[in-house]
């Protein structure tokens, strides 16, 4: 990997990280609980991608790609579990969904 690609990967990772910040806004102010779960799902997916970029920068992709694979799998399982949990068990606009009550 030459120096140009290394610089490009660094800036691509920083851009990816900076673009995650507006998604945190949706996690904070999301009017429903499922909005927050969707935003967490997006951030988890992008974290898996960011792990591959970090592994390429450290010249140790063989280790970081396993982290990314496990992270993507856990992200999917967690979002499916949240979907099953919020399906007909919790009101969308109720206590805990407005961000003022207790979490979940």
């Amino acid at each position: 990997m030459n120096a140009m690609m290394e610089t490009f990967f660094i800036y691509a990772g920083i851009t990816l990280l900076l673009m995650m910040a507006p998604v945190f806004y949706r996690i904070m102010v999301g009017p429903t609980a499922i909005d927050r779960i969707v935003a967490v799902n997006v951030i988890g997916t992008k974290t898996a991608v960011l792990l591959i970029i970090i592994g390429t920068l450290f010249e140790n992709v063989a280790m970081f790609v396993d982290f990314a694979l496990a992270y993507a799998l856990l992200n999917f399982i967690g979002s499916l579990a949240a979907a099953r949990y919020f399906n007909k068990t919790r009101p969308a606009y109720g206590a805990g969904a407005s961000g003022e009550g207790e979490i979940n």
């Binding site: 499922i34 969707v38 999917f76 499916l80 949240a82 979907a83 099953r84 919020f86 007909k88 969308a92």
Partner: peptide, 15 residues
């Protein structure tokens, strides 16, 4: 798949 499941959950919750 997860988008579909979450959207179905939101639809059933009455959003």
């Amino acid at each position: 798949t997860s988008t579909h499941a979450l959207m179905q959950a939101g639809y059933d919750d009455g959003i």
